[in-house]
Design a binder for these strands. Structure first.
Lengths: 205, 205
DNA sequence: GTCTATACAAGGATAGAC
DNA sequence: GTCTATCCTTGTATAGAC
């Protein structure tokens, strides 16, 4: 493993454990038994570490998320389970989401692009779920916008909320809590077969 | 206005404008044409300013929120409109929500108490809405928990999301966006009369 | 009780020696 | 590629003037 990779790995661990703002470059260096300037050599600014971690997350998501030609309701729920698992591994980014988006230009640029295509992707999937008879045909374009809106809010802030309000929950319990919430909202727009898939997915968690 | 009040008022303005982390004590002092130590006299730590702003917000909410004996669906939506308006005035607190909750013990204690009773309050209101025939009788206790969960997520993070994703929206537009989301979710659990009230509330925004 | 001046520690960032 | 020295900013503590 290169020094650069060693720094990235340990930074992610410490940031996840104690928060980005609470882990200094000096501390990270001491932990790795290297000198602060050495970290600066690979990452001139602290921001740069986070830009790289952000890239890792989006690559992880790309690798995890399989293209769905004919998505079922189960596929949809399963995809969110995977995305949430990935988010958890990079939870430090979500816990400092707003401040990073405001201060870290590159990170926010990268995130903006990825997020835009991700939302577009989900719009398509929802439309396909309607066509395939998993979501009700009464679901309008406007409803889909609201559903995407809802998904986007949950995806961005579930980690923040669970860190603040559900500290005692394990990773799995926390993820299940929010998958249940998504299932709850979506089942009201699902067909009978769609509901069935949601329920069996949730009861299998 | 006392010095203490002047400090609090201007701090809120600057924190809202540029973020809590980006406004230093020295800068606030310069802006007010007083010396940093003078701020320290009233607020030994920066945290203490935020504790006080947190109290102001919860007092504002208490003052705004009218006790509802026989709440209608319209009352429910209207209450959220008021709460969101109040949140916006103290948006800096929500933009740094997670880090404050983790680092500011008093603020998080105070918030914990208020939030607990607020959620309890909303559970009661939802139950009453069922009894009064605005929400469907098929709504179970478990459904109510999910709805409260949903409301809690939106209430805490709508400002964060709109700051990051909907920068161009005005205060009113942003609030309307999230009221629409709440209406969207709730209308699926509402009776005919309940739906009517939600729709007429939303179209009157 | 109110306000000022000053000092200190910690964190990010930079230039340059080896 | 690695490390040292140094600077600047921020939060905070203290001593003392009015």
């Amino acid at each position: 493993m290169t020094t650069r990779e060693i720094i990235l790995n340990r930074a992610l661990e410490l940031f996840n454990l104690r928060g980005i703002e609470n882990v200094g470059i000096r501390e990270l260096a001491t932990d790795l038994n290297i000198r602060p300037g050495n970290i600066t050599y690979y990452f001139p600014k602290k921001e740069d570490i986070l830009v790289e971690l952000g890239k890792q997350l989006s690559e992880l998501n790309s690798a995890t998320i399989v293209k769905l030609e004919n998505p079922s309701m189960t596929d949809f729920m399963e995809r969110y389970r995977q995305v949430f698992n990935n988010h958890y591994e990079y939870r430090c980014l979500f816990l400092s989401f707003v401040s990073q988006m405001q201060q870290n230009k590159k990170l926010s640029e990268n995130y903006g692009k990825v997020e835009k295509s991700r939302l577009e992707d989900f719009r398509k999937i929802l439309n396909k779920l309607v066509e395939a008879g998993y979501l009700d045909t009464s679901v309008t374009e406007d409803d889909i916008e609201q559903l995407v809106s809802f998904l986007s809010l949950v995806a961005r802030f579930w980690i923040s909320e669970s860190t603040v309000s559900y500290k005692k929950l394990s990773k799995k319990q926390a993820i299940n809590h929010y998958l249940n919430l998504i299932g709850f909202v979506f089942s009201k727009h699902a067909t009978i077969i769609g509901k069935k898939q949601i329920n069996s997915f949730l009861s299998g968690l």
